[in-house]
Structures are given as C-alpha cells and as structure tokens.
C-alpha cells in the first residue's frame, strides 16, 4: 500500500472521520534537509466527532499517536487541521 493510503487508513480507523483529505506535499520539499532522509511531507484535513471539546495540542497529539511508527519510518512532517463536526 502507498504511504498516503496507509496514512488515510490509519486516520479512518482511529477517528471514523466525516471528512478526510490527505495530500502528499513531499514534492514541495524535495532537496531540503528534511526530505533527504526519504520521509514524506503530508497535509491532513480531518473532521471527526473525536475532536469535540478537545484542545489544539491534544488534537495534534491524537493524530500523531494514530500515525504510530509511521512518524519515524514514513513521515517527516505532517501539517494537521483537525476539526470537530460543528466547527
């Protein structure tokens, strides 16, 4: 499975999102120091009930936790926009 598909799958499993968009932005960072290790840059937009009444830092921590080992093996940077359903 492609990297981006594994990221999407992990987010779907963890948060049962009503909206989810994952974009691979690795091409924007080709050549800079963080890209040389072969890890990717991704942009995540996710809307889920799981983020209701949850603060900003905690939302990011939840998304990072859902990525698990991929933060070490596949992902250099993850831009995260995590919203609750009514936001």
């Amino acid at each position: 499975m492609e990297r981006i598909d594994r990221i999407e799958q992990a987010l779907r499993d963890a948060f049962d999102p009503v909206e989810l968009r994952v974009k691979d932005q690795s091409h924007l960072h080709a050549g800079h120091a963080g890209a040389r290790d072969g890890l990717g840059h991704f942009d995540v937009f996710i809307v889920s009930d799981a983020f209701k009444d949850v603060g900003r830092v905690r939302r990011h921590q939840m998304v990072y936790a859902a990525m698990g080992d991929m933060m070490q093996t596949d992902i250099h940077a993850l831009a995260i926009r995590a919203r609750a359903v009514d936001e």
Binding site: V57, Y64, H76
Partner: peptide, 25 residues
C-alpha cells in the same frame, strides 16, 4: 516528553504550545 514527534516545538512556561501549524495559526 510531550508525545509530539516533530519539530519545531514551542514551550511557554514549560507547557507545549504546539508545532509550526499551531504557532502560525
């Protein structure tokens, strides 16, 4: 330490404020 696997990390009075996304927002 903060369950935050990427950098930058901004701390104010010892509390994690966030990474680049949150700081810029």
């Amino acid at each position: 330490y903060s369950n935050w696997p990427t950098f930058p990390q901004l701390y104010v009075n010892g509390e994690l404020i966030g990474g680049a996304d949150i700081v810029i927002d």
